[in-house]
Write a protein that binds this DNA or RNA. Structure first.
Length: 877
RNA sequence: GCCGGGAUGGCGGAAUCGGUAGACGCAGCGGAUUCAAAAUCCGCCGCCGCAAGGUGUGGGGGUUCGAGUCCCCCUCCCGGCACCA
């Protein structure tokens, strides 16, 4: 056995052993799985951006620890891996260096796969998949066609960011301060046709099923519930007459109790009434044009200056018949709700600000207690639902719910609306005007219109040799792709060139891993065995979109009767661990065109103020200053990712894994710093050295008669089993940093015992041997290579993967005497030792008799003595 | 702006149910070993104080015998906001 720790050779040997024994091949066959319960552990698959970053190492190590821990505890485990391989970065890379996205993607996959393998993850690579292969995306297309048939998929207009110079649709990420990232041109909103998936049809089920997911973090369920945003309100109309015809302007509100306070109505720039009013109003037409500039992002719209212009059109208040003017507001969205909102300036903060700005009337209709209403400044209570109606005629004195009920009944009686349940959730627009994605299987025929591609012609294969240049989708120039025959009439026709949102790819990959090699079906009986995913692990940034889309997609597959999709009540992920982001500093600088260029942290030198706060940075090469953007998620686009490769090359995968787990608990955000790596590596060297010095383990039988609990060997055994008990608890709650700590504590205790307990002490070698075997097994999920080598070298067994998981023994934990903290008036004043069996009275007496108690009670009598068994005694004097 | 989360020594973090704040590491300081260095080992290590002691978990208030933990208010930071993935 090597005296020194050489991670490279140890890790290569362990990985070769796992390959030879096909150690991580998952089996569905009942004959092979020996009645073990299944455990499907899945980490979110990576986008093949080029290199792994620390966020990946964190994510995949967490999954690997859980996988290996469950395997050793007798589960039949599956841990697959694949590639979320379609997406924008491949097109950006193509624009930069002229390489086709396909080649760039496949090269990245090859490199990153080798990086993942060097981490020693217990992955069944035989199930690997990439979403950019026709074998995979054929089933996106197949399921899309099923959704079309069922009316879940449909076509309508969508609003996109349009770059007028490049004549192309921009992703939100490509819009910087309202301008195109490459051209610097002001971005416009443009309406184009696109396909939508009716996720809102599932809104109630998606909301209700959150309560059936106790294995999900509370915060994720809350975020999803808020996102779905079910609200009970009233949908009603403001009638008006146009060219002698009776028309209705519809709005929706959750505050029908404030209806009597409506002083104007605001509509979106794209609303038909706005278009109409603009026809002979040049100022309004110009304003509507202005509204169309800027991005479509909600965050931008919510923070921009609220502006409006009157249309000169009046509608009738549905209850009073009073004339109410219609305004165009830049904050009203056509794509959400009715594209129009009633404005109650007195009781809505946004309407209040808008009314103050344009001098519109503010009329109080809700009162709370004695609070006086003033239009001078907005106050929190103005928006209360706790108050009662005032200045509201027959509704005066009613509370929120009574007022809403009464108003709803009244508009209903006038046939102008009624109660309605609404959702904040919108249908899922899936059309992307991009090349590197899954083609939408539609053929456009002049005669027949949009015709679905027949199943037997699937997949519609994406040509892999295109190179996007930033001016639109290159598929529009590919005659060989475009040209086809109409499936219905046979006449020449054109293929749809829009591709699918890449969230579709990741909405069902977990199901495909179970049947990755099936070319005849999307999923099969093996899916039914493995589903649901028992443990899903991924970044908190996916808390809403990816997870909600996956839940929706699973329910659609379930409704089609596909195998396994009905498991767990149609929910794909039984337990969810949301990993915190790995953050690093971000440095950027503006380009001439108004875009943003990013610099890697190693390319700049930090500038700090007197307090040590970072204010900016200087490029190392040319000394140019760059802006400090604070810290944020490691990402390729921001160039702040840290490649783990140098860490692995220098210290080995076990050190990288151990350090990552030790650095912080998984759910917590982690600011990257490599300052603890040395310590992690030092610990593994000590572990190796201890094993090397221990040599072959001879006898594993513990002494028949346990020593007194104060004897050094009993103390050692207690320390080991105490740390083990804590570590097992910590594993169960996924707090791996303290599991690593427990391993360190065990080694500290073993080293101390070996030094201090004489070699002639009876049972010494067995207790130390037992302790070390517990330590190796405990660490093996985190550092699988070194523990694999030591387990074999010391003769504990052939393969630590087959060892049983250690459990703490109660008999090792007993103590004859315990120490209790002594407090006087809640302040720590000392400690007392009492027999473990001492009762309350005995503890009180012992505490009151101490010198510290007498001193700090200063002659006052004890008014009360609080005894917390096993912990403390507090004398209140 | 809205929704969700976070803040504990110089740094990462620990403290399971409201019960010894700072486990386990990193960095630092002192020592041993060494011709020397690396490596290794031993000790110290929140802040103020010679000590007794006081004080301390982002800031302010509250509940309690006792608060990092519970309640109210505030600040800053992170994630998401539907075309980054």
């Amino acid at each position: 056995m090597q005296e020194k720790y050489h991670p490279q050779s140890i890790e290569a040997a362990a990985q070769a052993h796992w390959n030879q024994t096909r150690a991580f091949r998952a089996v569905e066959d009942p004959a092979e799985r020996h009645g073990k319960p299944k455990y499907y552990c899945l980490s979110m698959f990576p986008y093949p951006s080029g290199k792994l970053h620390m966020g990946h190492v964190r994510n995949y190590t967490i999954g690997d620890v859980l996988t290996r821990w469950h395997r050793m505890r007798g589960y039949n485990v599956l841990q697959p891996m694949g590639w979320d391989a379609f997406g924008l970065p491949a097109e950006n890379a193509a624009m930069q260096n002229g390489v086709p996205p396909a080649k760039w993607t496949y090269d990245n996959i090859a490199y990153m796969k080798q990086q993942l393998q060097s981490l020693g993850l217990a992955i069944d690579w035989e199930r690997e998949l990439a979403t950019c292969t026709p074998r995979y995306y054929k089933w996106n297309q197949w399921l899309f066609l099923r959704m079309l048939e069922k009316g879940i998929a449909y076509k309508k207009t969508q609003v996109v960011n349009w770059d007028p110079v490049d004549q192309t649709v921009l992703a939100n990420e490509q819009v910087i301060d309202g301008r195109g990232w490459r051209t610097g041109a002001l971005v416009e909103k443009r309406e184009i046709p696109g396909y939508y998936l009716g996720i809102t049809k599932f809104a109630d089920e998606l909301l209700a099923a959150l309560d059936t997911l106790p294995g999900w973090p509370e915060r994720v369920r809350t975020m999803q519930a808020n996102w779905i945003g079910r609200s009970q309100g009233v949908r009603f109309a403001f009638p008006y007459t146009l060219d002698g015809k009776a028309e209705k302007l519809w709005v929706y509100t959750t505050r029908a109790d404030t209806l009597m306070g409506v002083t104007f109505v605001a509509v979106a720039a794209e609303h038909p009434l706005a278009t109409l009013a603009a026809q002979n109003n040049p100022a309004l037409a110009a304003f509507i044009e202005e509204c169309k500039r800027g991005s479509v992002m909600e965050a931008d719209i919510a923070t921009m200056e609220k502006k409006g212009l009157p249309t000169g059109i009046f509608v009738e208040h549905p209850l009073t018949g009073r004339q109410v003017e219609v305004w165009v507001g830049n904050y009203v969205l056509m794509g959400y709700g009715e594209g129009a909102v009633m404005a109650v300036p007195a009781h809505d903060e946004r309407d209040f600000a808008f009314a103050k700005k344009y001098g519109l009337p503010i009329e109080q209709v809700i009162a709370q207690g004695d609070a006086t209403y003033s239009t001078d400044a907005w106050q929190e209570w103005y928006a209360t639902k706790e108050g009662v109606c005032v200045n509201s005629g027959r509704y005066d004195g009613l509370g929120y719910q009574d007022a809403v009920d009464a108003v709803a009944a009244d508009v209903e009686a006038k046939e102008l609306g009624g109660k309605q349940t609404q959702y904040r959730l919108r249908d899922w627009g899936i059309s992307r005007q991009r090349y590197w994605g899954c083609p939408i299987p539609i053929i456009h025929c002049e005669t027949c219109g949009s015709v679905p591609v027949p199943d037997d012609q699937l997949p519609v294969v994406l040509p892999e040799d295109c190179v996007p240049d930033g001016s639109g989708n290159p598929l529009n120039k590919r005659e060989d792709f475009l040209t086809c025959a109409c499936p219905r009439c046979g006449k020449p026709a054109r293929r749809e060139t829009d591709t699918m949102d890449t969230f579709i790819d990741s909405s069902w990959y977990y199901a495909r891993f179970c049947a990755a090699d099936n070319d005849a079906a999307m999923v099969d009986e093996r899916t039914a065995y493995w589903m649901p995913v028992d443990q899903y692990i991924g970044g908190i940034e996916h808390a809403i979109l990816h997870l909600l889309y996956s839940r929706f997609w699973t329910k659609v597959m379930r409704d089609l009767g596909l195998p396994g999709m009905d498991r767990n009540g149609g929910e794909p992920f039984a337990n969810l661990l949301t990993q915190g982001m790995v953050l690093n500093h971000i440095f950027s600088c503006r380009t001439e065109k108004g875009g943003v260029e990013y610099f890697a942290p190693e390319e700049v030198e930090l500038l700090r103020d007197e307090a040590g706060k970072i204010t900016g940075a200087r490029r190392i090469g040319d000394g140019g200053t760059v802006d400090y953007q604070g810290i944020g998620t490691m990402s390729k686009s921001k160039r702040n990712g840290v490649d783990p490769q140098s860490l692995i090359d220098e210290y080995g995968a076990d050190t990288a894994r151990f350090f990552m787990m030790f650095a912080s608990p998984p759910e917590q955000t982690l600011e990257w710093a490599d300052s603890g790596v040395e310590g992690a590596h030092r610990f593994l060297r000590r572990l190796w050295a201890f094993g090397a010095a221990l040599g072959q383990v001879a006898d594993t039988a513990l002494p028949a008669t346990p020593a007194a609990s104060a004897a050094p060997l009993a103390v050692l055994r207690r320390e080991i089993h105490l740390a083990l008990r804590q570590a097992n608890y910590d594993l169960s709650r996924h707090q791996f940093n303290t599991v690593a700590s427990a391993g360190m504590k065990m080694l500290n205790a073993l080293e101390k015992a070996q030094k201090e307990i004489g070699a002639d002490a009876e049972g010494r070698d067995t207790v130390i041997g037992e302790g070390f075997s517990i330590l190796l097994r405990l660490l093996s999920p985190i550092t699988p290579h070194i523990t694999h080598a030591l387990w074999r070298e010391l003769g504990y067994g052939n393969d630590i993967l087959d060892a049983t998981w250690p459990e703490a023994e109660e008999s090792a934990l007993v103590q004859d005497e315990v120490e209790l903290v002594l407090q006087v008036n809640g302040k720590l004043r000392g400690a007392i030792r009492v027999p473990a069996s001492a009762d309350r009275a005995a503890i009180e007496a012992a505490a009151l008799a101490t010198e510290e108690a007498l001193r700090f009670m200063e002659g006052r009598p004890a008014r009360k003595v609080v005894v917390v068994p096993g912990r403390l005694v507090n004398i209140v004097a």
